[in-house]
């Protein structure tokens, strides 16, 4: 177990310079989630265009892992259909439970940097916070039939 495997360069970069941080005006769906372990709050919202996620943003306060994971997630699912985004969420959560091998879910492969979190079981909740939040978002959007 090394700190470098947990806090890889890519993770620190996303933490210090989060992508897609903020709010989405006129969003199709939004969800908020809290990590009871640390009290971190996360909000994820997106807007659809031609049945694809045209814009997705996250906001809230959190540790390096939760913020970097959220930042990378927004990049990974932007442009996806709801079904494709749902599949990525399912795959990522399965990887973080150690149920399947880590595989690239995003074009850049940056998400693989979160593999190191598996060595720190208490931090898995930090990495999955945004993804659980997105799952609720997708549920909400699905119910609206949008």
């Amino acid at each position: 177990m090394s700190l470098e495997s947990l806090y890889q360069e890519i993770i620190l970069d996303h933490y210090k310079h989060p992508r897609n941080f903020g709010e989405v005006p006129g969003c199709a769906a939004a969800a908020e989630h809290e990590n009871p372990l640390c009290g971190d709050q996360m909000r994820v919202a997106f807007r659809l265009e031609d049945e694809r996620i045209a814009e997705i943003k996250f906001s809230g306060k959190g540790c390096a892992i939760s913020q970097a994971s959220a930042s990378m997630m927004t990049e990974a699912v932007r442009g996806c259909t709801l079904a494709a985004a749902r599949e990525k969420v399912t795959d990522f959560l399965a990887m973080m439970r150690g149920e399947r091998e880590f595989a690239a879910l995003d074009e850049t492969g940056e998400l693989e940097a979160l593999k190191g979190v598996l060595q720190f079981p208490v931090r898995v909740k930090c990495a999955t916070l945004a993804w659980n939040c997105l799952a609720h978002c997708l549920d909400a959007a699905g119910k609206d039939g949008s």
Binding site: C38, C63, I65
Partner: peptide, 25 residues
């Protein structure tokens, strides 16, 4: 530095502290 990250770094040096809301939200 988020308290959770600080606690993680300290842990790697054998220092045990608590990070969170300490059951007092």
């Amino acid at each position: 530095i988020h308290p959770h990250d600080l606690a993680q770094l300290l842990d790697q040096e054998g220092i045990a502290v608590r990070a969170g809301n300490h059951c007092a939200q």
